[in-house]
Simulated scan of single mutants.
Amino acid sequence: MKRSNRLAWMGAIAIAALVLLSLIAAPNNTKITVGSTYNRAPDGYGAWYNFMQKQGVSIQRWQKPFSEIQPQNNPATFLQVSTYPRGTSLDIQEREWVEKGNTLVILGVEGRVTEADFSTLQKSPQGDIKIETRRRDKKAKQKQIDLGDRFGAIVWQETYKQGKVIFSTTPYLAANAYQDNLSNFKYLADLVNKNSNTILVDEYIHGYKDADVREKESEGDLSSFFAKTPLFPISIQIGILLLTLIWAQNRRFGKPVTLDTQVTDNSEAYIQALALVLQKADTTDFVIDMVGKQEQLQLQKALGLGQIPLEHQALLNVWVEKTGASAADLDAVLKLRSHKQPMSEQELLSWLGKWRTIRLIRNS
């Protein structure tokens, strides 16, 4: 191999290694939007934020660091939905701010995993509050507990001079997933609005920042982001070297490669054709029967059962014993499978969505 070819290949390998290293070292921010009011997914708070606005409550998104809350914002209630469980201890800034008569609400603090059922209904003046966590806090004093059971506190408060802090072991107290359980929305609304303060919802921790904050933190545009990382000058140097080698040879790195003829996937084509026929014939019962059998077998496999389909009630009993979850959702999808009348497309999608919920519960 000629020296020039060897240098060209070395340049290409260096760039490939740089890209691979960037992908491996890049932080995982897939959960950063959990609890954000901009998030419309089940773990977001977009629906609750709209609910509060319709009530005429003074609420706004806070897209700056906590330290920038000014005196004119006082007294205020600051709601923070943690992406990851945080401790119950406050830093100096938080403590001083609360002691001035403000309220800090933190959803998603650390708590011990107890023997409580994963899904429970907790009594409150707003109705039954759906809680889906086994985490409880056993250190909270009885008079401070706002929501809890014999396993410990779920929601409690602590007083700091003129202000107070409200903690919750679940970050999903009024998440989008509970839109059908309006008591959850009303309960959180009552927690943050008891003193009729201005309510600030922390969006800064979810990555949302005002323009002046981004400018101050040198995140005004993409070029400034790359300019402050050491990878940028390295990339420029390697890019110049590679372009120089290509220009010197004025040809490709290797011989032209003949493209392979794309091979049709017969199985995929058959499945798509069959799906189209079933859709035209409005034969949903066949789809429900076949999908239902496979979903049940996968569920039995995950529960450590055999491949022979169990009876309806026997499977429900094992489900409750293994997961601690309610049998109602599983009972509904199993019963619907035995429903022989054709279903509409919307009903079929709803049924498939319920099976997806079952999979999420069994994997949690």
Rank of each mutant, 00 (worst) to 15 (best):
V105Q: 02
N74K: 10
S196P: 03
G111D: 04
S344N: 03
N193V: 10
A327I: 04
K143C: 08
A332H: 08
L349N: 05
I15V: 13
L303M: 05
Q296C: 03
A189P: 03
M290A: 13
S223C: 06
S350E: 05
V263N: 00
F78Q: 05
D117W: 06
M1Q: 08
A153T: 15
S89W: 08
S344H: 06
K301E: 07
R40G: 12
E203L: 02
T159H: 09
I106F: 02
Y187K: 04
E99L: 11
L173M: 11
T229G: 00
A76V: 00
R134Q: 15
A116N: 04
L107K: 00
Q142A: 14
V263I: 07
G46S: 14
A275H: 07
Q162V: 14
Q341H: 08
E96Y: 01
K130Y: 07
M343G: 01
R112W: 02
G239M: 13
N28C: 10
S183C: 10
R61T: 02
I145Q: 02
L278M: 12
G304T: 11
L173I: 15
A281I: 03
L303D: 07
L242S: 09
K186V: 10
T169W: 14
E347V: 04
Q72C: 04
V113C: 00
L20T: 09
T169Q: 11
R112V: 03
N363S: 09
A47N: 13
N39T: 13
Q294Y: 07
Q70T: 08
A211G: 10
K130T: 13
Y45G: 04
T88L: 02
K139E: 07
E158W: 05
W247N: 02
D289S: 12
Q144C: 04
V57M: 09
V333P: 10
E110G: 01
V113E: 09
F226A: 05
E345K: 00
I308T: 09
V113A: 04
I154C: 05
T103Q: 13
T258M: 11
T33R: 08
L200Y: 11
P71S: 04
L18N: 11
P27L: 15
R135H: 13
T30L: 15
R135I: 06
